[in-house]
Design a protein around this nucleic acid. Structure first.
Lengths: 336, 336
DNA sequence: CTGAAAGCGCTTACAG
DNA sequence: CTGAAAGCGCTTACAG
């Protein structure tokens, strides 16, 4: 960022605001004894001049602005590949990446500001009104990657075209000749899951096919959901000949459920995943899946975070990158 | 770290060293115009009092000391699970984790010091003499996780009992009745690979078995090495009935090579992996493998890094955590 | 609520 | 090489 320019000091701001350095200092440190009007004017100037406390100048000069990436649950392939995209874009743009688990500690956002973080990227997390308030109070910008909620204009988010992906996956199975296709999904409340499922439903309806209730099963984005859900589906009087899974882990669990029952994939059962993490390429058989451009999504989130940290305006509070069907060896025409 | 104690200032050091604050300041900033003797005495005191420049005090108060984790190549399951261990231990001990790819930039170590990093953890990397010199000059402590070189007394490292793991994996296959067992390994120069291979050789020799040259194949720790290597092994006039793979990715590649040839695992071919990453649990069939306690290894590396950052002495420059055989569904007695 | 003044911890030209 | 002195950018009691 601005290589040679002398950094703005409190004195600069004080002069421009027509107040004393002491008053500006109070605003920076959030003391109470400042008139609301004065506070607003000074804050406005601090922001416009991208004022940075001297405690952070040294660090930023050496390692650039630092962005905090928070994740929930395990550091699975999905998160790891997104993180790779974030790290590489950060290296390119001269920023640093701190990684941690999302914490619900009382003043987490203010603590992050004190630690010099310039923005937060949350990977697949739920944010509550309390979270948003805490963030707003701290002034820390947030970018959510693969939001679990509906895009909310108060937060910036990066996702993928989940509906189109669900549609493409299901059409692929239909074009192979499948008619009994089940959907084994993630959490019912997650928007990404809903979009994938509705893409599936849209494709089925367009073909004039009824979806029996038992053929749509929500769950978690885990191997166990895949193994258990597929087992239940295969025990149905009229089992599906193909399963569209909400992500690759579910798909791999479904493949294992088939294997345990002596069914071969794809001869006896076709399976389509979602994400195209390294798991999909290494599954046996390699998985037909819907690719999410995870590294690119990570890169987009990082760039957005940096722009917000610089006080720039963002054109759109939500962007989606294109998904793409990748055909491998886990799908084939239905047997017999 | 030391919650209430007032931090040591330059004035404290100056008084104790019997020099002026200006001189101490010069030492801290590495200026040339200080007598070598004076410099040494002052440096000694700075280190003993754990002097921290004011630019870093604020950050450390809010987020603890920050440790830089560097990896090479992709952020694979192996690295991701280790990183999880590092992150969790850091959260517990109040430290922050910056993650980046290893860079060979000219003054990388000094840049890290300027950015306030207190130590570096390198995951599975090679370090050259140039690296070690750059580090020594910067004074930044290094901990290597799963070193690719022989433990060197100049660097601290954390590993696992690879030889014992190789022995256990091979004995398991022998006890199932296998006699033609092949080793499909990683890079020939990597010590962890060498130790696994020699564990395998030791188990074979103890049983009085000759290992044909063609049954030991080095490669990379990748799926491709597994797929290609297993294909070559299975084309041998007398193919092995079992393969011990240097890691889980190689094992999964071998499973796929078998599937492609119409061979079933474990009925026609047994496969044992190494690491027990999530890949092993999600493979089809689930992989018998040698578990490395990756999270614990990450935690141990983080604790060591923090102790070094605090100027504490470490008892041993290398520690190894125990591996453990995990039997799943990819191994069985040889067929027919 | 505001700001003059004292103070803090550090850095830097410069005289010796 | 060393350090007295001026200066920097900020914070904090405290008087008004």
């Amino acid at each position: 960022m601005r290589p040679n320019a002398r950094r703005t000091t409190l004195a600069d701001i004080a002069q421009e605001a027509g107040v004393s350095v002491a008053t500006v200092s109070k605003v920076v440190n959030g003391r109470g004894d400042v008139a609301p009007q004065t506070r607003t004017r000074v804050q406005e100037l601090l922001h416009r001049h991208d004022y940075l406390a001297p405690v952070f100048r040294h660090t930023e000069a050496a390692a650039g602005p630092t962005i905090e990436v928070q994740f929930k649950g395990g550091l699975k392939s999905y998160v790891a590949e997104t993180l790779e995209g974030i790290i590489d874009s950060a290296a390119e743009l001269g920023a640093s990446v701190v990684i941690s688990r999302a914490s619900g500690a009382p003043h987490w956002a203010r603590d992050l500001v004190s630690a010099g973080r310039r923005a937060v990227i949350a990977v697949t997390s739920v944010y509550t009104a309390a979270h948003l308030n805490e963030l707003a109070r701290s002034g820390l910008p947030l970018v959510v990657l693969d939001p679990l909620h509906l895009p909310d204009s108060r937060v910036n988010s990066v996702g993928a075209t989940n509906f189109a992906g669900g549609l493409a996956a299901t059409r692929h199975l239909l074009s192979l000749g499948h008619r009994r296709i089940a959907y084994l999904g993630g959490p019912a409340m997650a928007v990404c899951n809903q979009a994938r499922m509705h893409g599936y439903r849209a494709a089925m309806e367009a073909e004039g096919l009824q979806v029996p209730e038992a053929h749509v099963r929500p769950g978690e984005f885990t191997y166990e959901t895949g193994a258990l859900g597929a087992a239940a589906l295969l025990d149905l009087p009229e089992p599906p000949t193909a399963i569209f899974a909400g992500n690759d882990e579910i798909a791999v669990g479904a493949v294992e459920a088939a294997r345990v029952r002596g069914l071969r994939v794809p001869e006896d059962l076709s399976v389509v995943g979602f994400d195209d993490t390294s798991l999909a390429q290494m599954a046996s058989p390699p998985l037909t899946t819907v690719r999410q451009p995870l590294r690119e999504m990570g890169g987009a989130a990082l760039r957005t975070a940096l722009r917000l940290a610089n006080g720039e305006k963002i054109e759109s509070h939500h962007i989606e990158l294109a998904t793409e069907l990748v055909v491998r060896a886990s799908t084939a025409p239905p047997g017999r």
